[in-house]
C-alpha cells in the first residue's frame, strides 16, 4: 500500500479511536480529499471532525491551537509546505509557547502536517523544504515522514504526547510503498532501529564496523540515499551506513555519534537550501563531540540556496538528488 494511503488509514484510525481528533485543512473534504488525496473518505466518515477550511493558514493553525488548548487533538494539513510561512506566528508565538509560558498550566498539542519538497516542477513557491526555519524553535518537535517509519507508530506518538509537532511529508513519498524493517533487513540492506517510538533507522549493506562513511538523511532524501548506498556497496564495494531519524528536531544525536565513532566520516543530506541548516547543526554537534576522531570535515549536502526553478532540467540542477548524494559519499569514502 502506498504511503499516502497508509497515512490516510492512520488518520482514519486516529479519528475512530479518539473522539478528540479533528482534521482541518484546505480542500481536505470529499470528494476531492486533499491535494494529495491523503484524507480521501475521511470527511464522509467524520463530517463534524474533518473540515475543509477557507484558504487561511493562520486561522487553520490558530483554530487548531484553540482546539488543542481546549483538550482536542487537532491535526492541521498544510497543502504545500511553502505555506507554512503563513502560520509561522501561530506556530512560534502561540502553539509552541503556550505550555512553557503558562508554566505547564495548559498544553497545545497541535499536529501540523505539511506536504513539502520539490522534483515535481511546481516551481519557486510550491516545491520548498522550509522545515529548517522551524528547527530549533523551542518546544516544537519537527518530524519527517519516511518510508522506513510506520505512520501508525508516528501518529501514536504524536497523539500520545502533549507537545506540538510539525510533520513534514515530502510529496514524492506519497506514491511510494513503505519499506519497514523485517527481520533486521530492508531489502538487501541490514536494518536496525534505535530509540523509542520514533527510532533512528540504521541501514547498511555490511555491518557498521566495515563501513567507512556514515550518512545522515531524512524523508525523501533518505529514500534516495538508501538506494545510493546499496548501489555503491554492490557495484563498487564502497560501504556506508545510512541513519534515518524520524524526529529531526530536537535531535537524538546518540545513534549518529555511535556510527561516526566507527566510520570517522559523516555526510548529511537534506533537500532544503544550503546554509544555516539541519546539516550545519549536525556538523557543529558532531565536530564538537567527536573532535579528533573525525577523519575529515563533515560534508553537508543541501540544495543550492536560490529559488527552485520550474523547468525540469533547471530544477534538477539545483535540488539535491541521487547524483549529489553519491558524489558526496564517494568523496568522503576516498
Amino acid at each position: 500500500m502506498i504511503f499516502a494511503k497508509e497515512l490516510g488509514d492512520t488518520l482514519r484510525g486516529a479519528l475512530t479511536d479518539d473522539p478528540r481528533v479533528v482534521l482541518l485543512g484546505e480542500d481536505i473534504a470529499d470528494p476531492y480529499g486533499g491535494a494529495f488525496k491523503v484524507t480521501r473518505g475521511l470527511s464522509t466518515a467524520f463530517p463534524q471532525r474533518v473540515r475543509t477550511t477557507p484558504i487561511s493558514e493562520g486561522a487553520i493553525a490558530g483554530v487548531s491551537a484553540g482546539l488543542a488548548l481546549a483538550g482536542y487533538r487537532p491535526i492541521a494539513e498544510v497543502m504545500f509546505g511553502d505555506f507554512l510561512t503563513l502560520m509561522f506566528d501561530q506556530v512560534v508565538n502561540h502553539i509552541a509557547k503556550y505550555q512553557a509560558m503558562y508554566a505547564g498550566q495548559a498544553t497545545c498539542p497541535v499536529v501540523v502536517r505539511a506536504a513539502t519538497g520539490g522534483h515535481r516542477g511546481y516551481g519557486p513557491t510550491h516545491s520548498q523544504s522550509l522545515e529548517k526555519h522551524f528547527l530549533g524553535v523551542p518546544h516544537l518537535r519537527v518530524v519527517a515522514a519516511s518510508l522506513f517509519h510506520d505512520p501508525r507508530e508516528v501518529f501514536s506518538d504524536f497523539l500520545g504526547r502533549d507537545e506540538p509537532v510539525l510533520y513534514v511529508e515530502h510529496k514524492l513519498l506519497y506514491p511510494q510503498h513503505l519499506t519497514l524493517p523485517v527481520n533486521g533487513r530492508i531489502g538487501d540492506l541490514l536494518a536496525t532501529s534505535e530509540g523509542g517510538p520514533l527510532p533512528t533507522v540504521r541501514l547498511s549493506a555490511v555491518p557498521v564496523e566495515d563501513c567507512t562513511v556514515s550518512v545522515l538523511a531524512y524523508g525523501y532524501q533518505a529514500m534516495l540515499a538508501a538506494k545510493v548506498i546499496e548501489r555503491l556497496a554492490m557495484e563498487e564495494e564502497i560501504f556506508a551506513e545510512l541513519l534515518v531519524p524520524a524526529q529531526i528536531a530536537p535531535m537524538d544525536w546518540a545513534p549518529v555519534e555511535r556510527s561516526v565513532a566507527v566510520t570517522g566520516r559523516l555526510v548529511t543530506v537534506e533537500e532544503g537550501a544550503d546554509g544555516w541548516s539541519w546539516g550545519t547543526e549536525a556538523a557543529s554537534v558532531i565536530s564538537r563531540r567527536l573532535f579528533g576522531r573525525l577523519r575529515r570535515p563533515v560534508d553537508v549536502v543541501a540544495s543550492e540556496a536560490t529559488v527552485i526553478p520550474s523547468s525540469k532540467t533547471k530544477e534538477a540542477s539545483i535540488l539535491v538528488g541521487s547524483a549529489q548524494i553519491e558524489a558526496a559519499i564517494r568523496a568522503a569514502a576516498r
Binding site: 479533528v22 463534524q48 471532525r49 493562520g58 486561522a59 493553525a61 490558530g62 483554530v63 487548531s64 491551537a65 484553540g66 482546539l67 488543542a68 488548548l69 481546549a70 483538550g71 482536542y72 487537532p74 506566528d89 501561530q90 508565538n93 502561540h94 509557547k97 503556550y98 503558562y102 508554566a103 498550566q105 495548559a106
Partner: peptide, 27 residues
C-alpha cells in the same frame, strides 16, 4: 493563564485561538 482565562501579547493571534476554543465547545 488561569482556569477559564488566557492572554497572549501578540496582536491578533488570540482571535483564532478563541475561535478554536469555541469550536471545541461546539463539538
Amino acid at each position: 493563564c488561569a482556569p477559564g482565562f488566557k492572554s497572549n501579547g501578540v496582536q491578533g493571534g488570540i482571535v483564532p485561538n478563541a475561535a478554536g476554543i469555541a469550536l471545541a465547545n461546539q463539538l
